[in-house]
Simulated scan of single mutants.
Amino acid sequence: MEPLLFGLFLFTCLVTMLGNMLIILAILSDSHLHTPMYFFLSNLSSVDICFISTTVPKMLINIQAQSKDISYTGCLIQVYFFLMIFAGMDGFLLTVMAYDQFVAICHPLHYTVIMNPRLCGLLVLVCWVIIFWVSLIHILLMRWLTFCPGTEIPHFFCEVVQILRVACSDTLINSIFLYVSTAILGVFLLIGILFSYSLIVSSLMGVSSAAGKYKAFSTCGSHLSVVSLYYGTSLGLYFSSSATHSSQSSIGSVMYTVVTPMLNPFMYSLRNKDVKGALGRLRNRGMMVHDGMLASEPRGHYGPQMQIL
């Protein structure tokens, strides 16, 4: 199964990076997409690229190598970026994007004033600062743990829950901080998303035009799909009894570490006319540049002509 798994995860990693890079390039190159919504989407794509780079490359090496070892420092680094990039920034960005949808639909006349570039940049900066300190506290607490010789993590990457289970020292403080931070951040962010969409739905109930309702719901469809996939896999794993040493834990982890970052660009590109239009213009621009390079190539020099008498 190793060649099959290696090819599958390598293909998934490449598709994820290519899809998210195309989203970022389309947003940067198209002036129509220089709006707060797509600013947050480009940040989400950047986070997904960085996130899959923290787990899948090491997993590919482990599939091919005879040794599955990872250094203690490398394990802590992987845990830190895993917590910071996925468990933190994805949730924060999805919540900020829900607030952006609320302002755009419920307060369209004040949208450009409320969602100004300064506020958008400040929201992203605050998200990074919060998750930076939460992740740092996790790592500092883990530095006090001790492990028995020959410790093996029954997982395909260093996940904080699995590390706490194989530690030989007391993990009470670590476990308390883990579940408190996950509950506060996860539940708080989910409540923020649900509150924003409850206001959106109540506002749309007063719209008499069916076309207006359909346009608004289609705009929110991509975001709702990503939110459902994110919370359905991450919170379901941490707060359910399935987070054990069984294969269900590994399957759930594969879903939110590999599948979710891969599906995000497809959900936003296939269900969003603006993104599809920007990708089409980006492709046409690339074809024009390629044709221009071919047309400018020298035809070659064949030397002087000979005349047959």
Rank of each mutant, 00 (worst) to 15 (best):
residue 52 I to D: 06
residue 116 N to E: 06
residue 108 P to L: 07
residue 135 S to V: 11
residue 108 P to E: 03
residue 160 V to W: 13
residue 130 I to M: 05
residue 81 F to Y: 15
residue 127 C to Q: 14
residue 107 H to V: 03
residue 86 F to N: 06
residue 137 I to L: 07
residue 145 L to I: 10
residue 105 I to D: 08
residue 77 I to Q: 15
residue 100 D to Y: 11
residue 81 F to D: 02
residue 90 D to I: 15
residue 72 Y to I: 04
residue 146 T to V: 13
residue 141 L to M: 07
residue 62 N to G: 12
residue 147 F to I: 06
residue 123 L to C: 13
residue 52 I to S: 12
residue 154 P to S: 03
residue 82 F to E: 00
residue 122 L to K: 14
residue 124 V to K: 07
residue 152 E to Q: 10
residue 80 Y to K: 06
residue 119 L to H: 02
residue 69 D to T: 15
residue 63 I to T: 00
residue 65 A to R: 06
residue 89 M to I: 02
residue 121 G to K: 14
residue 117 P to F: 10
residue 67 S to Q: 08
residue 82 F to M: 03
residue 106 C to W: 03
residue 114 I to N: 14
residue 136 L to I: 02
residue 157 F to R: 05
residue 130 I to Q: 03
residue 123 L to K: 08
residue 105 I to P: 08
residue 145 L to R: 06
residue 160 V to I: 14
residue 143 R to M: 09
residue 76 L to F: 13
residue 127 C to R: 04
residue 72 Y to G: 08
residue 154 P to L: 08
residue 162 Q to M: 15
residue 96 V to I: 10
residue 79 V to Y: 01
residue 133 W to I: 12
residue 108 P to Q: 04
residue 135 S to Y: 03
residue 93 L to R: 03
residue 140 L to E: 04
residue 86 F to K: 05
residue 74 G to C: 02
residue 61 I to P: 00
residue 124 V to P: 06
residue 122 L to N: 05
residue 140 L to V: 12
residue 151 T to Q: 13
residue 125 L to T: 08
residue 67 S to G: 09
residue 62 N to L: 04
residue 138 H to L: 01
residue 52 I to T: 12
residue 80 Y to Q: 00
residue 103 V to N: 09
residue 50 C to W: 05
residue 120 C to H: 04
residue 137 I to N: 01
residue 81 F to R: 06
